[in-house]
Design a protein around this nucleic acid. Structure first.
Lengths: 345, 345
DNA sequence: CTGAAAGCGCTAACAC
DNA sequence: GTGTTAGCGCTTTCAG
């Protein structure tokens, strides 16, 4: 920790981390190229040379400059990921699983948290694509044509997650949010409900679920007594508030679909406070299957989605393509979702 | 979903995006350096030239290669961040605030989710430092000496968050976890409690809080009836389980400190299920001040911490140093924490 | 199995 | 205000 004090003292006390591949090469008595091979393709170097070079690397504390390597090889070993938030456990799990998988394959993830409105998406994409990532994961739809054009021009594998609606750029892992809403409506109908309500966050996917729910309710001849939209991202507080807005309509039994488990938890809690019997008088269904829903008392009925599985699949898709394989039809998959029935319906 | 079948099926399907600074320069009739200046220091270029160059950039869809720029300028405009998890809302908020602040200043964040055991931290650091980040944010202690040595050798600003215990490398934003435990013990004591219990996750900081709690309880002459350690990261399920483990000791009133709000929520819920009166017979205090605690019924007493504020402060510290300013004593700050008293104590 | 030469795309430093 | 020259630290390519 102190032998470095005897640095090549070429002037003022300024120590640029100086160890580069040529330093290692000199120390090991080989060519720089050989050092490079020891690091990247060890099987093409003789054991003795490898040993010498390794020793020099350790001795000097050499950390290869991946920027220089990336420029030269035109491979950055970087993947960019864009998600609207990581505050939501679903996305947190997805990002975590995705970056674990990518890291195991030797890639690093640059994460961009875009928020729910993608204004200025072009400058975000420019900043990301400027790093020349080898691949890209993006969440859902709603990007400007110019931004999408940039993605296409980048000529790298792209996987879109979370939404199957719009025309996909390349690979896709998602589901039809309207269909989720419709299936929840059907489910609640079979439980004997006729009066329905919706609590939805102000975000395009949540609103798609709301639309699917509304349409199905209408189709089934049910009554939608309230459709309450609240600011994204969903919070427990919004759920409690939404529940209070619903109170005036609870003269008769009702079933409410919340666009996220956060909202549902808030609604269940507020119902308990207000003394509304759940599920007898009010049925509540959430979306996302957070631990919170499973382990609350009462446990909350919800739609289960597997954020972690999506992250892993997204990584697998990209890695396949990074390994040189071509496009195929199976690269557009529907994430299965299912309604998990618990005590609130 | 099928119109994409008519893709550019050009054999090897390999089209390198070719637009580089020289292409733009030729198109605009200027030198490459002028294009570079238009992008990086626009005020040093005449308005007419700027207009010409901008037009060429837009027309060609030029996206500057930051890898090449970084190699040349020795500035990557990248900062690396290491956190144990983003599944915990505290870290999620911290990361989000940190990357927002950094992005506004023109930096991008490479996020590494390290998990709670930092084995193989050297290879993690090597992968990160290989990108030559301009600065680094790391969480807490427990890294190997070799890994820390690498950080120091990198000669970049480093901010450590979340833990003030060990010898800091450079800047620091955190608090003394043992002190938190001690203050919670004191607080519960003033509420009239004599019998205490601790539910802690198996992670070094949570255990430090537990130790502080235990020591303070002993010092005050109280009785610690149970100290239950569960696997990290904390979950609601673990809280419910911990509560069940505590049941046999509830022949008399008791006060329990949970190392996270997740555990506390689980404990409160399980207590409700088991019919234990809270706070009359059992007082519960959490840690983290999640929305969950505030808006649960009953609202949960907890320790409030400001993950978001920490992220912002960390960014501000790094940006100050990146702007060329030197070290100062104020770069070691204690994050204030406070006990938020609610209905469970 | 190892090395030498050339260059990845950009910017620092210095001309003009 | 703009252009020229010379690299940044690595890997590709080709030669031995």
């Amino acid at each position: 920790m102190s032998e470095l004090a005897s640095d090549n003292a070429t002037g003022p006390a300024f120590v640029r981390s100086p160890v580069k591949i040529t330093d290692v090469a000199i120390a090991a008595g080989v060519a720089p190229m050989t050092v490079s091979r020891v690091i990247n393709t060890p099987d093409r170097v003789s054991p003795e040379t490898t040993a010498k070079v390794r020793a020099a690397i350790d001795r000097l504390g050499y950390v290869p400059n991946l920027i220089a390597g990336g420029l030269s090889s035109r491979k950055s070993r970087l993947v960019a990921a864009i998600v609207p938030t990581i505050a939501h456990p679903m996305f947190a799990g997805l990002v975590q699983a995705f970056s674990d998988s990518m890291r195991q394959a030797g890639y690093q993830v640059i994460l961009s948290i875009s928020g729910y409105e993608n204004n200025d998406d072009e400058s975000l994409f420019r900043a990301l694509l400027g790093r020349r990532p080898d691949a890209l994961l993006i969440t859902g739809s709603g990007y400007s044509p110019g931004a999408l054009e940039m993605l296409i021009e980048a000529h790298i594998p792209v996987v879109e997650i979370w939404d199957v609606s719009s025309r996909p750029i390349d690979m896709l892992i998602g589901f039809d949010h309207a269909q989720v809403g419709a299936e929840v409506a059907t489910f609640l109908r079979t439980k004997g409900h006729n009066r329905f309500a919706m609590l939805a966050a102000q975000d395009s996917r949540a609103l798609a679920r709301a639309r699917g729910f509304r349409d199905a309710v209408t189709r089934m001849g049910g009554e939608l007594v309230l459709e309450q939209v609240m600011p994204a991202p969903s919070t427990i507080g919004a759920g409690r508030e939404g529940m209070r807005a619903l109170m005036p309509f609870l003269n008769e039994p009702c079933a409410v679909f919340c666009s996220s488990d956060m909202l549902a938890f808030g609604a269940v809690t507020e119902a308990r406070v207000q003394g509304v019997p759940v599920p007898e008088h009010l049925a509540i269904c959430g979306f996302g299957n957070l631990e919170l829903s499973e382990l609350n008392e009462p446990p909350i009925t919800t739609v289960s989605l597997e954020g972690v599985g999506t992250g892993r699949t997204a990584a697998a898709f990209l890695l396949r393509r990074l390994a040189g394989e071509g496009r195929r039809d199976e690269d557009r998959v529907q994430v299965p979702f299912r309604i998990v029935e618990r005590a609130t319906t």
